[in-house]
Simulated assay, not measured.
Amino acid sequence: MPDVNTNSAEAVSTTALHQGEAAFFDVDNTLMQGASLFHVARKMYQKRAFTLSDAAGFAWKQAKFILRGENMSDVHSIQDSAQKLAAGISADFIRQLGEEVYDEMIVSKIWPGTRALTQEHLKSGRQVWLVTATPVEVAGVIAQRLHLTGALGTVAEIEDGMYTGRLVGEILHGPAKGRAVQELAEKEGLDLSRSWAYSDSFNDIPLLTAVGNPVAINPDAKLRKYARDNNWPVYDFRSGRRAATLGLQAATGAGVVYGLWKGIAMVRRR
């Protein structure tokens, strides 16, 4: 009697079972610590695409983002600033910059626990998509490097190979994420009632409620309460979170700004 590889048979069976399903992951504070767009801005500063004061503004918003979680006004402020600063820059430059940002900054910020979840979904035969307000070029690099199915991100307008400083559609944030996932599901033939979604932010309730299996990862206070009230799973992959929070709260506003400014100045000197 020939040998039968039962593990392979089970893998094939499991893959077939989950076809037509997907898992959707937010990026900032869900897949990685902090805001990916901040690292894009930092790299653009290193390449002299804008000034030190611009970089300091991004750094201050990044510090607030890590401390208190996602804030709609800060997200839109960062995105608007980045779009204006990118006007006149070539699309090829941004794609190359996305590769450098991933290798030098983002890869070390990825939460191992969240990455493991993406791989488990892939092994089960589900599509795995990133859904983020981050520029689609950068989101695409992250998805490619992690061997995910693809990425949905904010799309900037390009004319003659150059960014115009305007968006195509809207920032992929809040309700826009829910609509984008529904459109993707129609295109890919996905059953959202059997799919999964992961986020850290209460602002992503439209994404989380679009699927049958919502999960909170590293949640802000409002999402943690909402998840608890609705019996959603909650994963927290942050280590030393309480100590870091208390340390930041103990620092004066002036001290934080000074530290950020000195850090960026060191980058400039290098």
Rank of each mutant, 00 (worst) to 15 (best):
M1H: 11
M1S: 14
P2L: 12
V4H: 08
T6P: 00
S8H: 09
E10G: 03
A11G: 02
A16R: 14
A16S: 12
H18Y: 15
H18W: 14
H18G: 07
Q19K: 15
G20M: 03
G20S: 05
E21P: 01
E21S: 11
A22F: 04
D26Y: 00
D26N: 08
V27Q: 01
N29K: 03
T30E: 03
G34Y: 00
L37I: 12
L37A: 07
H39S: 05
V40M: 13
K43G: 06
Y45W: 10
Q46H: 10
K47T: 11
S53M: 12
A55K: 05
F65I: 06
G69A: 07
M72P: 11
S73E: 13
D74W: 04
D80Y: 07
S90C: 06
I94M: 13
I94D: 01
I94R: 02
R95V: 07
L97S: 08
E99M: 02
Y102Q: 08
E104Y: 01
I106L: 14
S108H: 06
I110A: 04
I110R: 03
W111G: 00
W111R: 01
T114Q: 04
R115I: 00
Q119I: 05
K123P: 07
Q127H: 12
V128K: 07
V131C: 09
T132F: 02
T132N: 04
V138T: 07
V141G: 04
I142T: 02
R145Y: 05
H147N: 15
T149N: 09
G153I: 02
T154N: 09
A156F: 09
M162H: 12
G165I: 02
G165C: 03
R166I: 00
E170G: 05
L172K: 05
L172V: 04
H173W: 04
H173V: 02
K177F: 01
K177S: 04
R179N: 08
V181K: 10
E183F: 00
A185M: 08
G189K: 05
L190H: 05
D191L: 11
R194A: 14
R194P: 06
F202M: 13
F202Q: 10
F202I: 14
I205R: 11
P206E: 10
T209Q: 15
A210V: 06
V211M: 11
G212W: 03
P214S: 10
A216V: 01
P219E: 01
R224V: 00
R224Q: 12
W232H: 08
P233I: 05
V234N: 01
S239T: 14
R241I: 07
R241W: 10
A243H: 06
A244R: 13
Q249G: 09
A250M: 13
A250F: 09
G253Q: 13
A254S: 14
G255I: 02
V257M: 14
V257Q: 14
L260C: 09
R269H: 06
R270T: 05
